[in-house]
Simulated scan of single mutants.
Amino acid sequence: MCSHTPVCPSAEAPDADAAQADSRCFEQGWTLLCNGILLFEDTGQLRPDLAAVAPRRPRRGAAGKAVAA
């Protein structure tokens, strides 16, 4: 599927969201990666096998700052 050099990571790879963008829709908040992953603005994903990956948002402390999980 990928024609980039070097080849982008597959959809099953741990770093799959590092693939190059094929198309984007900023108004709707999504990017289609060349490995078939639909990446959303909130870091959620829809994989080519239609599996949904929940957003990976950092936890927030009482002061609104990100805290380690």
Rank of each mutant, 00 (worst) to 15 (best):
E41K: 15
F40M: 13
R60Q: 13
R56A: 15
L50A: 12
R60N: 04
E41R: 15
Q28W: 08
E12L: 11
S23P: 01
P9M: 06
Q20E: 05
Q28T: 08
C34R: 05
D49Y: 04
M1T: 12
L46G: 00
E41S: 15
A51V: 11
A54D: 11
M1P: 10
P48F: 01
S3P: 12
A51W: 07
S3A: 14
A62D: 13
P55K: 05
W30F: 10
D22T: 11
P6R: 02
P6D: 01
A13D: 13
D17L: 08
A51Q: 13
D17I: 08
S10D: 11
E41N: 15
D22Q: 14
L32E: 00
A63L: 09
V67Q: 10
P9H: 01
F40K: 13
D15M: 12
K65Y: 11
P9W: 01
A62V: 07
G29L: 04
C34I: 01
P55F: 06
G36T: 01
M1A: 11
L33R: 01
E12M: 14
R57I: 13
G44H: 02
A66M: 14
E27I: 06
A16E: 03
E27N: 15
R47D: 02
P9Q: 04
A66Y: 05
A16F: 10
V67F: 04
L50P: 01
R60G: 04
S10L: 09
A11R: 00
R47F: 08
L50R: 13
H4Y: 04
A66I: 05
S10K: 06
L50S: 08
C8I: 03
T5Q: 04
G61E: 08
P14C: 03
A63E: 11
E41G: 12
A16Y: 06
C2Q: 02
G36H: 00
A18P: 12
V53G: 01
A62W: 11
S3E: 12
L46T: 09
G64F: 09
E41T: 15
C8N: 06
T31Q: 05
P48G: 03
D49K: 06
H4W: 13
V7L: 15
R57P: 03
F40S: 03
I37S: 00
C25I: 04
D17M: 09
H4L: 09
Q20V: 07
A16K: 07
W30G: 00
A18I: 04
R56Y: 06
A51L: 12
Q45K: 09
M1R: 13
R57E: 10
H4T: 10
T43K: 07
T5H: 07
P55E: 06
A54T: 11
L38H: 06
A66F: 12
G61W: 02
A11N: 13
G29T: 02
R24N: 08
L46V: 07
